[in-house]
């Protein structure tokens, strides 16, 4: 039976899914990146292989996320795509008439507007990561609350406190100030959720026509407090898909499926790569005053990828 592998290498998590021919998830993994993408990809693929029956044959591989090129050279990807396209594809597989996708991940937040299945507009956070998963993580650990309870706590609030949401530094000092005045933690967290949603809609969502059905995905969609704040601010119900935290990987797998119908073969190197040694190295190129830091990745003793240079001097010609 043919199946398609999708890998989303994000700043905070690495997600790996296998889709069957019908586009259903056979297996899906959500692993923390922990600053070691290569090891986690290998470990994840090992676990994934363990979930698959021998009858399943990987017929295509797609990668996405900020580490998509790295993952792409390691596994031998058929398609390497940006997160926006991957998320849009995944959302419309699950809810075909979706018109708005809200996606909040570790470092990125984005909004994607679709009309009749076509992406017509999108926006991503620009210079600041206020309101993304990393910041929520950081605040949860500062308050010593497990991140998976953070959202639920917000729902217990009766009187939300106003928190400044434009910048994480301002938000944090505002939260500390309110906490020292004696406000209850659920009220502060609820206030934070509202602030983040306000900032998201005013920054990322600026000028966008948000029409239902609205799908909310990405790691932060697990946070019930943020979902509630979105529903309150928009006045429309928000849907969270079953596999909300691995949607990028689902989209990548689907794109791989589309790609191999054209190329008719896969470049997937096989699950054997989980046992190969990979290492990276870097050097400064002194060819011009840019002094680029070039990163190389080795599979055994062979360079399989290089990036970081501003010109094509170090590109690898296949």
């Amino acid at each position: 039976m043919k199946a398609y592998l999708g890998i989303d290498v994000g700043s905070v998590s690495i997600n790996i899914v296998v889709l069957n021919e019908a586009g259903e998830v056979i297996t899906g993994l959500y692993l923390r990146t922990q600053g070691r993408p290569i090891e986690v990809i290998q470990e994840g693929l090992k676990q994934t292989a363990g979930h698959l029956t021998p009858a399943i044959e990987i017929a295509g591989v797609g990668t996405t996320g900020s580490g998509r090129y790295l993952a792409g050279v390691i596994v031998g990807a058929d398609v390497v795509k940006n997160e926006i396209t991957a998320h849009a594809i995944a959302a419309s597989m699950i809810i075909p008439d979706v018109q708005t996708v809200l996606e909040i991940g570790g470092q990125d937040s984005k909004i994607i507007i679709l009309r009749e299945g076509i992406v017509t507009d999108f926006a991503m956070n620009t210079v600041c990561a206020a309101g993304t998963g990393s910041f929520l993580d950081q605040q949860a650990s500062r308050l010593n609350i497990p991140i998976d309870q953070f959202g639920e706590l917000a729902l217990q609030s009766g009187t939300p406190v106003r928190i400044a949401g434009r910048c994480t530094v301002f938000a944090e000092s505002d939260m500390i100030h309110k906490q020292q005045m004696g406000h209850r933690i659920p009220d502060i967290i609820r206030g934070l959720s509202e602030a983040l949603v306000r900032n998201y809609l005013n920054n990322v969502g600026k000028g966008k026509e948000i029409l239902p059905p609205v799908v909310f995905q990405g790691g932060v969609a697990a946070n019930a407090g943020i979902k509630a704040a979105f529903e309150e601010a928009l006045g429309i119900p928000i849907q969270i898909p079953e596999h909300f935290n691995i949607m990028g990987a689902i989209g990548a797998a689907q794109l791989a499926r589309e790609e191999v119908t054209i190329t008719e073969h896969t470049r997937f190197k096989g699950f054997k790569i989980t046992g190969l040694p990979y290492r990276t190295g870097s050097f400064e190129c002194n060819g011009c005053p840019n002094i680029c830091e070039v990163v190389e990745i080795y599979e055994e003793d062979k360079v399989i990828g290089r990036w970081g240079s501003r010109c094509n001097k170090w590109d690898i010609v296949e």
Binding site: G23, A88, I89, S92, M93, P96, L114, R115, E116, G117, I118, V119, T120, D121, F122, Q254, E258
Partner: peptide, 16 residues
């Protein structure tokens, strides 16, 4: 986005 728009036009062909 531009390519899909150009190829399929508005509302002509689904994304997937």
């Amino acid at each position: 986005l531009l390519r899909r728009k150009k190829l399929f036009g508005r509302g002509a062909e689904p994304l997937t």
